[in-house]
C-alpha cells in the first residue's frame, strides 16, 4: 500500500460539494453523492474520511457512519483496483451463476469479500443487478459484463491490470 493520503478535497472538489449541497432543499440530501465522490478521491470511506465528510455537512460523524454502513457500495476498507461483483440472484442462479462464481474464485485464488495479494481485484457476490435477460452476469467496476461463460470470464479478468 502507498503512503496514507491526506484526507482533504481539492478546491475544485470542494466547489463540487457546495454545488451538490445546493441542489437539495436540505444540504444533507447531497450526502450520498458526496460519499461517492469521497470514495473516488480517497479509494475507500475510512473512519477518517467519514469524519471529514461529516465536517462538510455539519453532522456528527456517527450519523455519517450509520449511512456508510447501511449501503453496499461504500467500502470501509481498502479495496482492489478493480471490483468484480458476480450476481447470485434468481435469474443468474438459473443460468449457472454458481459455476461462474466458483470459476472466478478459482481464477483469482480468493474468496468472496477478499482482495488479491497484488491489490488488483476485490471479489463480491451480490444481489440482483437487474440484467437478468443476459444472465449470468457480473459488474466489473462501472461496467456490466453479460452472458458470461468461463472463457469470457477468463478474458475479462485477464484484461484487468
Amino acid at each position: 500500500m502507498t503512503a496514507t493520503r491526506t484526507i482533504v478535497f481539492s478546491p475544485d472538489q470542494l466547489a463540487e460539494v457546495r454545488r451538490l449541497q445546493g441542489l437539495y432543499p436540505d444540504k444533507r440530501g447531497a450526502l450520498l453523492p458526496v460519499l461517492h465522490m469521497a470514495q473516488d478521491a480517497f479509494d475507500y470511506v475510512s473512519l477518517e474520511v467519514q469524519e471529514y465528510v461529516a465536517g462538510l455537512f455539519d453532522m456528527a460523524p456517527s450519523h455519517v457512519h450509520e449511512v456508510v454502513t447501511f449501503y453496499t457500495l461504500y467500502f470501509q476498507q481498502p479495496k482492489g483496483r478493480h471490483v468484480v461483483a458476480v450476481c447470485h440472484n434468481l435469474s443468474c442462479y438459473l443460468a449457472g451463476s454458481r459455476e461462474i462464481l466458483a470459476h472466478v474464485k478459482q481464477r483469482l485464488g480468493i474468496g468472496v469479500g477478499e482482495t488479491t495479494d497484488d491489490g488488483r481485484v476485490t471479489l463480491q457476490s451480490v444481489e440482483c443487478l437487474c440484467a437478468c435477460e443476459a444472465a449470468p452476469m457480473m459488474q466489473v467496476d462501472d461496467r456490466y459484463e453479460l452472458n458470461l461463460t468461463p472463457e469470457k470470464v477468463d478474458r475479462i479478468l485477464g484484461e484487468l491490470r
Partner: peptide, 27 residues
C-alpha cells in the same frame, strides 16, 4: 431535475425508504 445516485440497497426502491435515502439518511 436533479439526478441522484443511490448507493446499493434494495429497500430504497420502497417509496418512503427512497425518500429517506434522498434526504441523505439510511434508507
Amino acid at each position: 431535475i436533479v439526478v441522484h445516485r443511490g448507493a446499493g440497497a434494495y429497500i430504497c426502491g420502497e417509496e418512503t425508504g427512497l425518500l429517506s435515502s434522498l434526504e441523505g439518511k439510511k434508507g
